[in-house]
Simulated scan of single mutants.
Amino acid sequence: MNLKILAIIPARGGSKGVPRKNIRNLAGKPLIAWTIEEAKKSKYINRLVLSSDDDEIIEVAKEYGCDVPFKRPKELAQDDTPGIETVLHAIEHCPGYDFVMILQPTSPLRTVEDIDQCIEYTMRENAKLCVSVSEASQSPYWMYKREDDYLVPLIKQDKLITRRQDIPKVFILNGSIYLGDIEKIKAAKSFITNETKAYEMPISKSYDIDSLDDFIICENFIKKLP
């Protein structure tokens, strides 16, 4: 491909649920290392960079061979900072690329095959935006709101679907891969528009680490790998 792809690993230091999450040990190495190592194997990524405000995270990323061309400003590393602002900041500091890919370090089960297949799928479809998804384990067709203690279907149906095999498949963003044409991202300020394609990943590779329990689950998965 003639397109140049910039991959960004966003990893701020102020994680609340699990302190120091991005560099916490997972199956023998820092959480962020799993993403760095897989991204560096990609056939298509031209440059892999870290966006972080934290000196310790920066040093760990460098140890594993990730480029750190800038330090993220503190104002872009707050709890309420929109993720897209981090992306736009990184793009501004790393010009000369056609597409940008976001690889969150909290998805350690994502492999280089997922990364490269997502890129290939996006190019094959001639898409400008693509995000990774997985099939939802719970269907909104069987979900309800409570109004005055009465059950109200979240999705109105002429006839209630009672068999699981009859329920339409629904998907959720798994947070693993975001890919977009840089000019499109600058204009839309989002990876999610009505033009966004979905790259499906299996549930078994779609864990997003947000708690200590997630660390245990992912570590067990990794230990079972051949």
Score class of each variant (00 low, 15 high):
D210N: 14
I192S: 09
D53L: 03
D67C: 05
N194I: 12
R12T: 11
V112R: 12
S206K: 01
V170H: 11
K71Q: 11
K71D: 00
Q104Y: 13
I155V: 15
L212V: 05
I155A: 08
K156V: 12
A11P: 02
L109T: 11
D148T: 01
D53P: 04
K40Y: 08
M143W: 09
S137H: 11
S15Y: 13
P105S: 10
T81S: 14
I216P: 00
H93A: 05
L225K: 12
P202F: 08
A188N: 14
S132F: 04
D98M: 07
S176P: 08
E195K: 15
L109H: 07
Y97T: 07
K205W: 04
F171E: 10
I5F: 02
N194D: 15
E59F: 02
W34G: 01
I58L: 02
P153N: 08
L109F: 07
R146D: 09
I217Q: 08
A61N: 00
S190F: 09
A27V: 06
T122G: 02
V133D: 03
Y178F: 15
A198Y: 11
C218S: 05
P153K: 05
R110W: 02
D54R: 01
L179R: 01
R146W: 11
A90I: 05
A39C: 07
K43C: 05
K189R: 15
T162F: 10
L48T: 04
E85W: 08
R20M: 09
I115P: 01
A136M: 15
K128L: 12
S176L: 06
N46M: 11
L26V: 08
E85C: 10
P108W: 07
A27L: 03
L103I: 04
D214L: 07
Q157M: 14
I115M: 11
P30T: 00
D80E: 11
K40R: 15
Y150W: 10
T86D: 14
T35E: 02
V133A: 12
S134Y: 06
E183N: 15
G175D: 03
A33G: 01
C66Y: 00
E219H: 12
C130F: 03
L154Q: 15
P140D: 10
I155Q: 02
E56Q: 03
I155K: 09
E195M: 10
M101H: 05
P69I: 04
T122F: 01
